[in-house]
Amino acid sequence: MEAINKLSIGKKVIYYILLIIVAVYILFPFVWIFLTSIKMPSDITSFPPKFIFNATLDNYKNLFAIAQTGAAASTMNFPRYYLNSVIIAGFGTILSLIIGCGAGYALTRAEFKNEGSRENVGFTLLSFWFGPELAIILPLYVIYNRIGMIDKHITLILAYQLIGIPFVVWMSRSFFRDVPVSIEEASRIDGYSLIQTFRKITFPLVKSGLAATAVLTFIFQWNNFLFALVIGGRNTMPITTGALGFISYEAVLWGQMAAAIILSSVPQLILAMFVQQHMVRGLTFGAVKG
């Protein structure tokens, strides 16, 4: 902000106009969805859009009403979907972090007979991200189906590792690479075992980066749609696919859908705020030579 205060008034005006344009561009969908979520059905579909209306929390209430009326709503169980999302993305993130960090650490520290294979292994893992999810999901469906694993939480958690682990490996690897090997060695000589060294020296140095990675991993898994659609089922349906239920033959429950979306972005917002500082530091961690 200090840098802005030094600008001349003309420049300040331009600066703020640009900021406002960016803010509107980014925030408009959120605002729109939020407004939709507190409108009556008649207000939602009115044209031109109403910005002044009687606000209502009915949409939110209906989400949690167990016995619901209306053809589309009768099959909806929003709290259940929400819980599914939390379970799948939550445990999925934890698993990705544990496995991914270990792999990332090993990739930076382990001795490779051929130095080139270090990059190859890393790149192979990352390349999971390049291919279309559809290419993976069909074989995965066939395998899961054959071994009777469809519609189980663990199934989705495992499938999400395909997104989570490569990401965590790739990110954590760059953080570990920034920790000089010699300080780990110094710690070993100072009388600490490998694990104690990791806990006391390495982990504290990478934890802000890992926090940012964890949040991003969680968001990717929370937002995933395709895996959940294909290998999820009635019992494991998360919000992303669950929200489809608001669209039915008879009607589209725009209001409830909007309310569901607003609620489903709450955990991401909280997490993002919680680690915001870490995130900024974490994502630039690799850029600054320590």
Partner: peptide
């Protein structure tokens, strides 16, 4: 392993623990 040898080593590049103060660095062993 190095932690069982009871040797102290000075590293050419110092290898100080960046998240510690001087006191914490020196107290670490």
């Amino acid at each position: 392993p190095p932690n069982k040898r009871e040797v102290a080593m000075f590293f050419e590049n110092y290898a100080l623990y960046p998240h510690f103060t001087v006191r914490e660095n020196m107290a670490y062993p």
